[in-house]
């Protein structure tokens, strides 16, 4: 149980996917100008991360590994993710129109989000169990949401401030991301101390 807690809270705080593992930087920079879009993007990413972990786990463990095809993980995982995202888009467009109206717009950005492929590969490389994989993905998604929401707040302040000409736009955004990342460094060691 404590192993799962360490993985789950570690993925949210100490090993935050965006701020310490650098996965999903594009949406972090591109879709964090407004709180609403930050939340919508995070919800879509979390859902796909968890589902992708659930689907890739049995395929990797019971199909690829016994046949010594583990090296095909990148090709197989990205295909599964691309197909799954496409399928979700078709299904919710047909049967859950309100959900599609609020989340559909984020789905095209998810196939090429490193965090989704990253979490499935990390699960396989670390030989996580099914439960560990799911909680790693769930924690990763929540950590992604936390980073995006905090950063959406920070960005509002940047836009309102008077910056040196050279730092206007992207450079200021990156330096602000650096400061947010420092605050996450402060969580180092906490998770292990509490649960181990």
């Amino acid at each position: 149980m404590s192993a799962i807690a360490v993985i789950f809270f570690g993925a949210i705080l100490t090993d935050n996917f965006v701020l310490s593992k650098f996965m999903g930087i594009c949406p972090f920079l591109g879709v964090s100008k407004k709180m609403n879009s930050a939340l919508g993007m995070s919800a879509a990413v979390t859902f796909v991360m968890v589902m992708a972990s659930m689907i890739t786990y049995p395929i990797y463990t019971f199909l690829l590994v016994p046949n010594e095809l583990g090296y095909l993980q990148t090709v197989v995982f990205i295909l599964i993710i691309a197909l799954f995202v496409q399928l979700v888009e078709i299904i919710i467009k047909r049967y859950a129109k309100p959900l599609y109206n609020s989340l559909g717009v984020y789905l095209p950005l998810i196939t090429t989000n490193c965090a989704v492929l990253g979490v499935t590969i990390l699960n396989a490389d670390n030989a996580y169990t099914f439960a560990e994989s799911v909680f790693n993905a769930l924690g990763g998604g929540i950590g992604f949401a936390l980073a995006l929401v905090i950063f959406a707040g920070v960005r509002g302040r940047i836009d309102a401030s008077d910056l040196p000409k050279a730092f206007k736009g992207i450079p200021a955004t990156l330096v602000a991301a650096s400061i947010v990342s420092i605050s996450f460094l402060g969580f180092g060691g906490i998770v292990e101390k509490i649960f181990v």
Binding site: P171, V175, S178, S181
Partner: peptide, 23 residues
């Protein structure tokens, strides 16, 4: 060497590109 330093250096390098390209 920390992740935060990565964001910081990247931001500064792009600011430098801004200056060198004369905006």
């Amino acid at each position: 060497s920390s992740p935060a330093g990565g964001f910081f250096v990247f931001g500064c390098v792009i600011a430098l590109v801004n200056v060198l390209s004369n905006y």
